[in-house]
Design a protein around this nucleic acid. Structure first.
Length: 530
RNA sequence: GCCGCGUUCGUCUAGCCCGGUCAGGACGCCAGGUUUUCAUCCUGGAAAUCAUGGGUUCGAAUCCCAUACGCGGUACCA
């Protein structure tokens, strides 16, 4: 059996769309699962929609996400043992790697033209000189008469061969149309949808070659997939209706058609096709917002696919997805892009990170935003190493409360500057000033006696918890309160002193990160103010 | 209009091909618990008359037909 080959074929219209990512991902997973090749080609036959730099962006996004290609368009001259590699003519700095190129459609114009001519010669296609205005008029009439909008074959029936030649000689603009046979039911199998049928009487003689010399998608994609030996065409559901045209082209060329898999669409919360209006659609937007690439891949993979029968695993690495992926478990209906679930998956991925990884990712994420400059408010004189250690401590106690990289430091700003003094905040329940002071003094005494080397998260928690469970006479009026509530007598004022915040990590964690010196200083400072 | 595809908790979905467990899991939501607050974590709960209507059958989310609704296509865009 032939080696399985799939491809991702985006148009360079700006950025990698999450829907595009899903298509790319499934094509990648399917190929890798079956020890096949995954390639990238560029569909840039519509010059009106071309965006400068989009090709590079697309490649960068795929590279960043780790969807490696065996072949096709790349940003560096990667050479696997016996493949060719050459710089693209149209995109300097972009390379085409592999033996089945070009992988960029705008560089294959002559090839498409050759094949289109071949179709005409064999009677499978014909020249059309109709002007756009006439076509539009015709379509309007057909719609008004409730007829299917189909080209009326004016040029096939009324333009003689001599006229065609004359027109061509005079450089009349022309297109080439496919000749769709009448009265035929074209049947085809789709891996996801099963058998699909089309009546050719309702299929128009689609244009294959435009008057600007560029091919349309139909011609180009069929030729490309043949040239590149694609075995499985995995693409969005919006292509399902043009399947008969493609089947016909394979037949006309005498080529074996690949297998098709039309993926369900990604939807907005209102079930319309996922669009910019209702949120971000570019993968890079999600990266910029602080989502991990692992989470994005994980989430997008689960939109429309699941491991099936009994499997309840939700968190998958790319490698695990490769292992489990199966086209037969792709759902048929469209899937709503639910950001809440993405948030959860992201938080799960953040929890899996080591502190070192979390630190590196945070650094990378915040670099451009100069987040860590807030550090300098208090610790300007610190060495880079001290700073790094400090930040890692913060991340250690923050990791479980993060849903997103952008939240790093957000709930822990008090580490960077002196805590605000707010006597009402310091009070546990209706504590008197006197009790409040006693509580803080007790904490101070306890903490002063902890040596530097014992100043660890575990010790601080152990020692402070023991003290919190004691019920000193001065605080006896809280004795009837629940056990946990009783602990609050000691712990709440401490925590509030250290942070000046209503919500924060525990006092043990705060004291640990702040260090002995800073902790004692904040305590003394507050006690002095009561 | 015409053609095609789809339809299970709010959302992602399992189950459907090979009819017969209170239709299962996850997110979100609610409640309770864990070492004070927040978060994490744990436990529990509400949440789908399986789009609707007809069949077939002792029995249907599962098979058949129709209808509705949604989406996609209907371009010298992909």
């Amino acid at each position: 059996m032939n080696k399985i080959r799939t491809r991702f074929a985006p148009s360079p219209t700006g950025y990698l769309h999450v829907g595009g990512l899903r298509t790319a991902l499934y094509a990648y997973l399917f190929a890798k699962k079956n020890d096949g090749d995954f390639l990238l080609k560029i569909e840039d036959t519509d010059r009106k929609r071309f965006v400068e730099g989009a090709v590079e962006k697309l490649i960068n996004s795929l590279d960043f996400l780790g969807l490696e290609r065996n072949e096709g368009v790349m940003l560096s001259k990667v050479l696997s043992s016996n493949t060719n590699s050459q710089e693209s003519k149209n995109y300097p700095g972009v390379f085409e790697v592999g033996e089945y190129g070009p992988y960029i459609q705008s560089e294959k114009l002559e090839i498409y033209k050759k094949y289109a001519d071949e179709l005409v010669k064999n009677g499978y296609a014909y020249y059309c000189f109709c002007e756009p205005e006439r076509l539009e008029e015709m379509r309007k009439e057909q719609t008004a008469k409730k007829q299917p909008p189909i080209y009326d074959r004016f040029c096939l029936q009324n333009v003689s061969e001599e006229e065609v030649n004359k027109n061509l000689k005079n450089n009349c603009p022309y297109t080439i149309r496919i000749k769709v046979p009448h009265d035929e039911i074209i049947e085809a199998d789709d891996i996801i949808r099963g058998r699909v049928k089309f009546n050719t009487n309702l299929v128009t003689d689609q244009i294959l070659l435009k008057s600007d010399g560029f091919p349309t998608y139909h011609l180009a994609s069929v030729i490309d997939d043949h040239d590149m030996q694609t075995t499985h065409v995995i693409r969005g559901e919006e292509w399902l209706p043009s399947m008969p045209i493609h089947i016909l082209l394979y037949r006309y060329f005498g080529w074996e058609a690949p297998k098709f898999a039309h993926l369900p669409l990604l939807l907005n919360p209102d079930k319309s096709k996922l669009s910019k209006r209702q949120g971000d659609v570019a993968v890079e937007d999600y990266i910029k917002k602080g989502y991990l690439k692992e989470a994005i891949i994980n989430f997008v993979a689960m939109l429309g696919w699941n491991p099936g029968k009994g499997e309840t695993q939700e968190i998958f690495t790319l490698e695990e997805l490769v292992e489990k992926f199966d086209l037969s478990h792709v759902h048929k209906a469209g899937a709503v892009f639910d950001i809440k679930k993405l948030d959860w998956i992201n938080s799960q991925w953040i929890k899996k990170l080591s502190i070192e990884e979390l630190y590196q990712k945070s650094l990378e994420f915040f670099e451009e935003k100069e987040f860590y400059k807030s550090w300098n408010m208090k610790h300007e004189a610190c060495s880079t190493e001290e700073k790094e250690n400090y930040l890692k401590k913060i991340l250690t106690i923050e990791q479980d409360r993060l849903q997103n990289l952008s939240e790093v430091g957000e709930s822990n700003q008090f580490f960077f500057h002196d805590a605000n003094f707010d006597k009402e905040l310091l009070r546990w329940k209706d504590m008197s000033d006197e009790d409040l002071k006693k509580s803080l003094e007790k904490s101070l005494t306890v903490l002063e006696n902890i040596t530097d080397e014992n100043w660890t998260r575990e010790n601080l928690e152990k020692i402070l918890m023991e003290k919190a469970d004691e019920k000193p006479a001065s605080l006896a009026r809280f004795a009837e309160s629940r056990r946990a509530g009783g602990r609050g007598e000691l712990l709440w004022p401490l925590r509030a002193t250290l942070t000046g915040e209503k919500k924060s990590p525990s006092p043990f964690e705060c004291a640990w990160v702040l260090g002995k010196e800073e902790t004692l200083s904040r305590l003394k400072n507050t006690i002095g103010k009561i």
